[in-house]
C-alpha cells in the first residue's frame, strides 16, 4: 500500500466514529509517513531496506539538505505520531484535531513526491 492510500484510510478512520479512531488513524498515518520517507529516499538514490526510522530520518535529513522544512515536517510528524501510537503512562489519547494536524503534516511530506 502506498502512502497516498494509507493517508486516505487514516483520514476516513478519523472522520468516522470508532472509539479509538484517533489512535487508529495515527497508526495509519505513521505507516503513510514511513512509506513517504521510503519513496522519497528512493528518489534520491537511498534505498531504505529494513533500517529503523531513526536511521531513515537521519538519511532523510542529509538527502533533503536542500529542503529543511520538508525534513522538519517529517521529523515533527514522526515524533507526534510515535507519541500518539505508543501508550505512555503520562499521556492521554491524542485528540481528533491533534491527529488531524499530524495527518496534514504527513500529507505535506507525501505530496511533494
Amino acid at each position: 500500500m502506498n502512502d497516498a492510500t494509507l493517508l486516505q484510510q487514516a483520514q476516513s478512520v478519523l472522520d468516522g466514529n470508532a472509539p479509538q479512531r484517533s489512535r487508529m488513524a495515527s497508526w495509519l498515518a505513521r505507516s503513510a509517513l514511513e512509506e513517504a520517507v521510503h519513496s522519497r529516499l528512493e528518489q534520491r538514490g537511498r534505498p531504505a531496506g529494513t533500517a529503523s526510522m531513526r536511521s531513515l530520518l537521519s538519511c532523510f535529513e542529509v538527502a533533503y539538505l536542500d529542503d529543511p522544512s520538508l525534513v522538519e515536517s517529517a521529523q515533527n510528524a514522526w515524533v507526534g505520531l510515535s507519541n500518539a501510537c505508543h501508550h505512555h503512562a503520562f499521556q492521554l489519547t491524542p485528540t481528533t484535531a491533534e491527529t488531524q494536524q499530524l495527518i496534514d503534516t504527513v500529507r505535506r511530506v507525501s505530496n511533494r513526491a
Binding site: L41, R46, P47, A48, G49, A51, S52, S55, E61, V62
Partner: peptide, 27 residues
C-alpha cells in the same frame, strides 16, 4: 550519535549508509 546509529543499523542498505554518513558527519 545519529551517525553511529546509522553504522550500527544492520537493516540499512550499505549504499544508503555510504551516501548518508558523510553528510551526517559533516553536520
Amino acid at each position: 550519535d545519529d551517525a553511529f546509529a546509522l553504522v550500527l543499523d544492520v537493516g540499512l542498505p550499505e549504499e544508503t549508509l555510504r551516501r548518508t554518513l558523510p553528510g551526517m558527519l559533516r553536520f
